[in-house]
Design a protein around this nucleic acid. Sequence first.
DNA 1: GATTAATGCTAAA
DNA 2: TTAGCCTTAATCT
Length: 295
Amino acid sequence: MPEGHSVHRLARQFQDVFGGQRLEVSSPQGRFVAGAKLLTGHTMVEALAHGKQFFLRFEHGLFLHVHLGLYGAWSFGGDSTFTGASSIGAPRRIGERESGQASDGGDYAGPPAPVGAVRVRLVSDHGWADLRGATTCAAITAAEAEAVLDRLGPDPLHNRPGDREEFIARLRRRKTAVALLLMDQSVLAGVGNIYRAEVLFRQAVDPWTPGTAVDVETAGRLWDDTVSTMSDGVRDGRIVTTPPSLWTGGAALAPDADAHFVYKREGMPCRACGTLVGVTEIGARKLYWCPGCQI
DNA sequence: GATTAATGCTAAA
DNA sequence: TTAGCCTTAATCT
């Protein structure tokens, strides 16, 4: 379920806590035993994210490739060089949250016994990470990693030179509905169902507009707003697309009920115009939108 | 205790 | 277009 911002946070956390560390790699669940053998005992030199694809590069040239899919998640723990145990990925209660077994003392005695179906366990001298429920988990070569990246569109969280123009071109090349194109990872890498709905609302774009009918200026605004809202998501560790003025009680943090404009708000009045928010299925996913604002 | 839905994607039909 | 993947939390009986 995580969108791109969660995967970028993962890459940052893996770089911080495992970068340059020699890792023991195992598969308590048993489904990744062969891959684990190829990686165990090697040093993780770099953690990378592009869209929702996640890679760990090891010093001998192989990569661990992970895609969390709909319900994958990592959980962590370790000694004081870790910021405390946490989990990132599918919601374990509300968004991403601390999983509660932080060990902040200096008496780290190794990882706990695996709970549930742990596909991969990584263990360093200072901590551990467990992966559950991922769609993709593989040990691959540099060429194979390159092939995965080649299929993807620009990632708004990288926002490299030329990315904005590339997105605009890819969006306007196809007559598919813009709501589908925003979730097409070859057009835009990292956006999922929440950012899709929220950015379309914020930019007042009709979700059924064909890509070919989106003007350059509007396409540019979609990119810019995606960069902005997803960057906030990386910083906050949750998706908040509403401004503080809409948070009840003047709260410093957005209450969950106030965090979105349309996502999961079907039947409730639009925060801007009062029209009831609608929901429909498109591409086997739910699309939320305001029939009043997004003409 | 059983069922369903979820921030996703692939491959088969 | 549909089934399936494989996990958890929330929502039912």
